[in-house]
């Protein structure tokens, strides 16, 4: 599983660079999006190099398009390898989603049908990625807004099977669980009961927007505000079962001042600290 400390971390934003460097707040780790550090040099690398000296690092890819049917972009895999070799992060993760088709990169994490066929494709892509990067990766559950009539496998089973076949770990985004389950009118607790928690190497917590529509609420995974209360409750329930896990506060849009982000991380850390042993394993 990931080598990140089982503590709270935050997504690094360049506007927080000086604040982090000057005050060195206590954080389990920082997380960055891989693609922002794929230039040759300049400020992004200068900042990451300085921060890496003080913090554990999680590199989170958003552009590999693991959930698409097209072969993976081997140039992109090579660029990821270069980045991981340079910064030696404690974890690399990507998404159960796709973002590229043909020549077009769409800059969003797009959904896929869950079938035996797509399962095999995703497993092949995860195998290829772990092979190319020379390390285990974590795969994140998506937030979704639509379904596919061709899907035959529940998402939790799909993810469990990927982990089983490829040996990858999973990144459990609790906000994504809440968003998807609300949108599809299924129970988030039931989803988490089915989720293979023993494969989870990291947790993500982010904020979402909600809109009331005639067919039920539409929740949008915006990463633009505080983590919602029901998501904190679900997180607490997960951690009570698993014990402490590396937990990221994600806030990518309308980024607040650093203290606001640190307060969210503190709240996550308090829950981690309060559950030193998970119920799942305490009996073993």
């Amino acid at each position: 599983m990931s080598q990140l400390p089982a503590q709270a971390g935050i997504g690094f934003k360049p506007q927080h660079y000086r604040g982090l460097l000057d005050t060195k707040p206590s954080l389990g780790f920082l997380e960055v999006h891989a693609e922002n550090y794929m230039g040759a040099g300049g400020p992004p690398h200068a900042m990451l190099t300085a921060l890496r000296a003080d913090y554990a690092l999680s590199v989170h890819g958003v552009g590999l398009s693991i959930g698409g049917p097209a072969p993976l972009d081997t140039d992109h895999l090579a660029r990821l390898r270069t980045l991981l070799d340079r910064y030696e992060p404690q974890s690399f993760s990507e998404h159960l989603a796709w973002s590229s088709h043909g020549d077009a990169y769409l800059n969003d994490l797009l959904p896929l049908p869950y079938t035996e066929h797509t399962l095999q494709t995703v497993c092949d892509h995860v195998d290829q990625t772990q092979e190319a990067l020379g390390r285990q990766m974590l795969l994140e559950n998506p937030s979704t807004y639509v379904l596919f009539d061709t899907s035959t496998i529940p998402e939790t089973e799909f993810l469990a099977e990927i982990a089983r076949r490829t040996g990858c770990g999973l990144l459990l985004d609790v906000n994504n669980v809440f968003v998807s389950c609300s949108n599809h009118r299924t129970g988030a607790r039931a989803y988490l009961d089915q989720f293979p928690l023993d494969a989870v190497g990291e947790v993500h917590l982010g904020g979402h927007e909600a809109e009331d529509l005639p067919g039920g609420p539409l929740l949008i995974d915006s990463h633009g505000r505080e983590v919602a209360e029901p998501v904190w409750t679900l997180f607490q329930e997960v951690i009570a079962k698993t014990g402490p896990l590396p937990t990221l506060i994600e806030w990518d849009n309308d980024v607040p001042d650093l203290p606001v982000l640190l307060a969210e991380a503190d709240r996550a850390q308090t829950i981690l600290t309060a559950n030193p042993k998970g119920q799942l394993y305490a009996a073993q």
């Binding site: 698409g68 049917p69 097209a70 796709w98 590229s100 088709h101 043909g102 077009a104 769409l106 969003d108 797009l110 896929l112 049908p113 066929h117 797509t118 639509v146 379904l147 596919f148 009539d149 061709t150 599809h184 009118r185 529509l213 005639p214 067919g215 039920g216």
Partner: peptide, 29 residues
């Protein structure tokens, strides 16, 4: 939905119509 779910969705995302195999729950738009 064509086997390649990404082709139809990409067309839809860049201005085309929604692919037929994409669904939502009853009562949702």
């Amino acid at each position: 939905l064509p086997d390649d779910h990404t082709a139809a969705m990409t067309r839809a995302l860049l201005g085309g119509g929604i692919p037929r195999g994409v669904t939502v729950k009853r009562g949702q738009d």
